[in-house]
């Protein structure tokens, strides 16, 4: 990919930022402003909010996110393989079968240890 092609990405970036900024700018310019304490509260579908937004998470989320990151990294390896898959055919298929098979052992282990259970 030529560096010039990244200009398109730059154009998308600028247009995207403008799309987000323009409505805010229009509202800022046109809308009337009334100072009321209710307007500064967090919007929670009309329910009066309670507690802090920064609550302590349950530790169980951590294991899920770790497992997610590992399979996220696995997908990174799938992508370059899938591009050249047609060139190598059956050989590429079996190489990836080994790769995914090894990770499948990990998933089975996680499953059996109850790491995927919520309780």
């Amino acid at each position: 990919m030529l560096l010039v092609d990244w200009l398109y990405v730059g154009v998308f970036l600028v247009v995207g930022l403008a799309m987000a900024a323009l409505p805010l700018a229009v509202v800022w310019a046109l809308a009337p402003r009334l100072a009321q304490p209710q307007k500064r509260t967090t919007y929670e579908s009309g329910v009066v909010p309670f507690g802090q937004a920064w609550a302590q998470f349950n530790v169980r989320y951590y294991l899920f996110s770790l497992v997610f990151v590992i399979f996220d990294v696995e997908v990174i390896y799938l992508y370059p393989w899938s591009i050249v898959f047609r060139q190598y055919g059956r050989y590429a298929f079996f190489v990836m079968l080994i790769f995914v098979g090894i990770l499948l052992l990990g998933l089975i282990h996680a499953w059996r240890k109850g790491a995927l259970e919520w309780t």
Binding site: V59, L63, L66, V73, I102, G106, H109, K113
Partner: peptide, 18 residues
Amino acid sequence: IVTSFVLLVALMGAIVIA
């Protein structure tokens, strides 16, 4: 292939610690 083993070890390590 070794990379997949590294990922496997990382996964199992995460489970053991958790």
